[in-house]
Design a protein around this nucleic acid. Sequence first.
DNA 1: CTGGGGATGGGGCCC
DNA 2: TGGGCCCCATCCCCA
Length: 572
Amino acid sequence: MELPNHAKQLLLQLNQQRAKGFLCDVIIVVENALFRAHKNILAASSIYFKSLVLHDNLINLDTEMVNPSVFRQVLDFIYTGKLMSSSEQSNEQNYTALLTAASYLQLHDLAALCRKKLKRSGGKSLPSKPSTPGPQSRSRLNNQRLSTSTPAGPKNHYPPTPSDVDQPQPDEGLRDKLSDDEMFVGSSGRNGNGGNGSSNGNLSSGGSAGEPDLGLDLSKKSPPSAGTATDALSPHSISQESPQSASVSTTNSASLDDSSTTLPGVDTGSEELNSSSKASEDNQNQPDGPPPQKKSRQGARKNEWPKREASGLKSEDHERPLVNGVIVGPKDGRSSDQSFQCKDEDEGGENGQDHTDESGQSDGESAGGGGGTGGGNHSANYVYRQEGFEPAFGDNLYVCIPCGKGFPSSEQLNAHVETHNEDELYIKEEGGTFVKEEDEEEAEDLSAPVGPSSFGSEARPFKCTVCSKSYKDPATLRQHEKSHWLTRPFPCNICGKMFTQRGTMTRHMRSHLGLKPFACEECGMRFTRQYRLTEHMRVHSGEKPYECQLCGGKFTQQRNLISHLRMHTSPS
DNA sequence: CTGGGGATGGGGCCC
DNA sequence: TGGGCCCCATCCCCA
């Protein structure tokens, strides 16, 4: 007994879900375009994707290898098995580009298809050896850097180089990768920065030089997580997607919707951590008992950040995956960053979901991209609309989210986006919100009592003309002066929040993505920053280096000492 | 119920 | 650019 149309129907459904962003759990960034998709689907169609989605919910593709238009076709192909030709370019060009992309992405069927097409059309332009573009090698470097801790061989790079991908043995890049991931398993290197290898160098591929926003290497050391990697990546396992690989998403289960929790029997193995993942995880890790945490507190804690995120995403939307909707920048106010607002473009996708779709095809109503609207905040999200998914925009498939304008080409969108950034650069002075910072002095004395504390009084010849703070070197002064600017040059690509320092912004991005590279060996808890881990380790060691001079109370953290001191000093 | 303490998250900023 | 440390905010637990 076999349903003849089963596969087809299934694909159809999936494609419709993609159209609505329903259950989409990964965003692929291509230049300024964002595509949403399902990890499982991507992983099932390409080993390369498989390795990427393993640790990341945001994937940045090398723009030298694929552009938004091409990627749209690629994605369509993945979800439909059909090649929709692009009207923008000559067919041959298009197939050439597609072939390059397919090779890069290790979509071998698609590549073969393109080759066939090209051959048929006389294809001498067959790009059998796409030249190695700069960014590519950049990302490769990056990946090597990222995975320095892994012994994986010299070819330890993620985005396979073109020469790799075009090899007949497609799995080569993967194999390298495999070893990477295997290294994650139980590799608890951590601490001294030892552990963890790569994950996505791809985020850094960033495309054409000088693309400040996208070329982020957010993962830096990626989580030693993914105990799952081993089998998830076994070369032949594509079709037998193990539950583990399905569950991997590690980096950000926070952003996965509950579907991710529907993988009960999943033995996450050492996959630990996933600090953000739900309670079920604890059980998975410790099938026969409570989690190792000494305090239930920690168990509870584990949920914290997902919780926050969820709360930010509107409670009605129960854990709607962050990536599912495009997240729009917070309005203002400091803590606003903690409450991302999820664009509800796909309302129907989640609750009202399916249904609506039967009729048809990919013409669902509201599309992936996110309602274009933007509602006037400074989001920096730019979505490339997936064809057919958003009739409202007609031919203008490239839509700028902040203002909702559509553009017929990525170039035009890019140009437009530029103007946004500039605007944002010079606006943003709005009342009051952007304040804070100078409240540090008072606390200073409080924290003084103990701790390694501060300020030697070396020469600080570089003085800020605005606030007269002084610094040892001009670079620091420059950096400081930025804090006086009315503008913040570094926008978060996901929520649009602006930052004065790139580093702060990338760190912030990590929190979106749930990248928590630093894991505690004792309890598996994970952190976004080394410092946090250090701090946390005192919980286990019992060390309490901070002592209150007034009452002798000891604290593991300086900040707690400070708040304690407030208690002493506050009138009440 | 409340306040204090423990613990964690995120942003700013200096080095 | 990344690390480290500061800050505030917040959550949870417990007395």
